[in-house]
């Protein structure tokens, strides 16, 4: 088990190095940060001096090596745009993104699972068809459009919810939370729904398909023959057995929620890492871009590792196979 984790950690470092390398390679195509950093009156000499100071004149391997060497020491440099250490900025933005992702995931699970069960049980019901049709919208409409539509309805027409920002936040140490104020909670609603809609649809359809599958199996028939109540059969036996793949998928999707948050955060001016990243691209803020990508890679790697380990814990068959394989 320990050896397994260590092996995975080594793989993770390799993955992150590759991500850093590729992203660094791509930055050559994003443009030159100098023109964003200096004003129009700057002379050619001033521009050249700035480029030299940032090390942009060095060949690619030197720049990459320097980035990795600094990153290993926990040194991610200063943002070109904000002039503050990148790690501090990321830590400042992290709570906003994680709270948003947490709410979106919760929302997707709490609505997606019951809806999936319902549509699985009442396959031909009117509500089921309605839910399935509406959920198609969630998959087919682009996130930014959903966000704008929600803003139009709930902020502009009804005036119930704020259209941008995080509302009032409270500091708990370095973590700034929006959960403790009314304004902060209200501000969370629209972005969370926007971000959750795709995942909710996914979970609903997954649960539905699994439910249909499980309901056909023999043990459900036996359970019915034993005269168990519908409730016990649906939730005690059928749903429980659909949950393993749902949890796996959801775990993996949290990574993409963080990645998808870029769009949602931009639409709602949500001061998280996604917005930071997008602004960094526009400004060609290389230290922020590279650190963000490495951080997201780290998230993916860690989540994958946890999911793998959970799988190991949850599914007894895996353990048995492994131990027998080890015995031979």
């Amino acid at each position: 088990m320990i050896a397994y984790i260590i092996r995975r950690l080594f793989q993770s470092i390799l993955v992150m190095l590759v991500v850093a390398f590729i992203s660094f390679g791509l930055f050559n195509f994003v443009g030159d940060p100098i023109n964003n950093m200096v004003g129009q009156e700057a002379t050619t000499e001033q521009r050249e001096a700035a480029r030299e100071r940032l090390g942009l004149n060095d060949p690619f391997p030197v720049q990459f090596g320097r980035f990795v060497a600094n990153a290993v020491q926990g040194e991610f440099g200063l943002s070109y745009r904000l002039g503050e250490p990148v790690d501090e900025i990321l830590v400042e933005r992290l709570p906003a993104t994680l709270e948003l992702v947490f709410c979106a995931a919760l929302f997707a699970l709490l609505l997606g699972v019951p809806a999936g069960v319902y549509t699985g049980l009442h396959r031909h019901g009117f509500m089921s068809k309605l839910l399935l049709t509406v959920s198609l919208v969630g998959i087919s409409l682009p996130t930014f459009l959903i966000g704008i539509l929600l803003i139009l309805v709930f902020s502009v027409l009804l005036g119930w919810l704020p259209s941008f920002g995080r509302g009032a936040t409270v500091d708990l140490g370095w973590w700034s939370t929006g959960f403790l104020t009314v304004g902060g909670l209200k501000a969370l609603i629209l972005p969370s729904i926007t971000l959750a809609l795709f995942q909710m649809t996914l979970i609903m359809r997954l649960v539905r398909a699994e439910m249909l599958e499980v309901l056909r199996t023999d043990y459900i028939k036996f359970a019915r023959a034993r005269g168990l109540s519908n409730r016990a059969i649906h939730f005690g036996h059928a749903l429980k057995n659909t949950m393993v793949p749902v949890i796996t998928i959801m775990g993996l999707q949290i990574g993409s929620l963080i990645a998808f948050a870029i769009i949602t955060e931009t639409v709602f001016q949500w001061p998280g890492m996604g917005l930071l990243f997008l602004q960094a691209i526009q400004f060609v803020d290389i230290p922020v871009m590279s650190s963000y990508l490495v951080l997201v890679a780290l998230f993916f790697v860690v989540i994958n590792l946890i999911v793998d380990l959970l799988y190991y814990v949850v599914d007894p068959r895996l353990r048995i196979e492994r131990s027998t394989a080890g015995g031979h």
Partner: peptide
């Protein structure tokens, strides 16, 4: 600052 044009317009109309 609000970077998205549509959001900025919406925030103005809604009086935020």
């Amino acid at each position: 600052p609000i970077s998205n044009d549509a959001t900025r317009v919406a925030a103005l109309i809604s009086g935020e």
